[in-house]
Design a protein around this nucleic acid. Sequence first.
RNA 1: GGUGGGGUGACGGAGUUGGUCGAUCGUGACGGUCUCGAAAACCGUUGUACCCUCUGGGUACCGUGGGUUCGAAUCCCACCCCCACCGCCA
Length: 423
Amino acid sequence: MLDLRFIRANPDIVRKAIADKGEKAELDRLLELDEAARAIIVESDELKRQRNVESERIATLKKAGEDASEPIARMREVAASIKEYDEKLAAMRGEIETLALMIPNMPHESVPVGADEDENVPVREWGEPHALSDKPVPHWEIGEALGILNFKASAKIAGSNFPVFVGAGARLERALIQFMLDVHTNEHGYTEVSPPIVANRLAVQATGQLPKLESDMYHIEQDDLFLISTGEVPLTNLHREEIIPEGRLPICYTTYTPCFRREAGSYGRDTRGLVRVHQFDKVEMMKYVEPSTSYDEHEALTRNAETILQRLDLPYRLKMLCTGDLSFAAAKCYDIDIWSAGVGKWLEVSSCSNFEDFQARRAGIQYKPADGGKPRFVHTLNGSGVALARTVVAILENYQTPDGKIAIPEVLRPYMDGLSQIA
RNA sequence: GGUGGGGUGACGGAGUUGGUCGAUCGUGACGGUCUCGAAAACCGUUGUACCCUCUGGGUACCGUGGGUUCGAAUCCCACCCCCACCGCCA
């Protein structure tokens, strides 16, 4: 959420940002309501002031044993007006809050203006597609042939597009998780967290998935809880409504969690195999930082994600998202895609974003400056480090051999009892 | 799920026969005295948000939301969370 005062003072800048991001928000209605609400505050504050003064007088009169029925009768009417104003104000504030939550974050000045993903800007590439096989077989074919992926069984358990990993496939999944967590904790300085994978409404609202993406989330009605769509949700809410001493910043967390996405409305698009699924594993990185450092930290976090892919020797490309492809809450974002030889497509496996203080304001995450100044909002950043299902796709398709086997990336072998290939 | 206890300012902890309570006190933090310096001691300062006709004035906030009242941290109702014990269970 943006600072309402900022919106009030810079409506045109905000309007442009909304347009650049391709979002819809009722900015004019918001500004109108904001002004009307402030007019009501003036009225009701004045009445409350009168009430306070008179109440004190009534107390004095009563103590002196004098008659106070006249001011009491008068204040009875004032109290009724106050109630009216307050009810009107509460309704307006509710609407203001709703509208303000629909205003997206401002893109950073370094972000190119563009309509959609076609206008994203390539930043760098790394690695070459492997040439282990001339004609790579799509991962769903080789995966089923080797008995490590079972796409039919999921229908019996939950429905389509919930992948089932079996045997060496499950082991590969577990090895990847452990490898990534080890690199981030041992080499990149992140603290590992194992959080709940459900979150309440307030928590999901803080990170920005709600209210906009409610239809994309699994919801447990009985307890009004949501299955998390990303580890970002628990990690960002770890310090909700807290004031952190500046000396503790930056705080860096990493976590492995399953991620759940309904993918409403995306049927028919990339739906084969593991490319677009309702549940996938992900190792997430997250930082709470002092604002002036956030763009440097953003670069570092992105490099942390790249390190994983380099160690796995998976070719990737990194691009900066243009305004139109930037998510609702982000100010700047790099996406990392890996090459799927079997599908013949680049697949997004990491999205590294700087949210500046957008999430922090929603979540009430502040820091106390070392110089003793007033608490300020931290900047939050996060990135996948990296998403598992699509990484498995890339491994199965990049590491397959001409005789239909899968070589295990070197760095994963220690996590798989030295296994060098899946046959 | 049941019973009991509790949620107050950065923290600890008062205050519940409604009326100078935004809230005693202690700790911490900040400034000062003292000191070569530090500690100790002593003195002082120290919540947040919002509004306005803004070197000032005002309003709100004692878990959350309602209610009673001229007036509520204090009374009533609902909900949430925490702690303890019981039940159930991995």
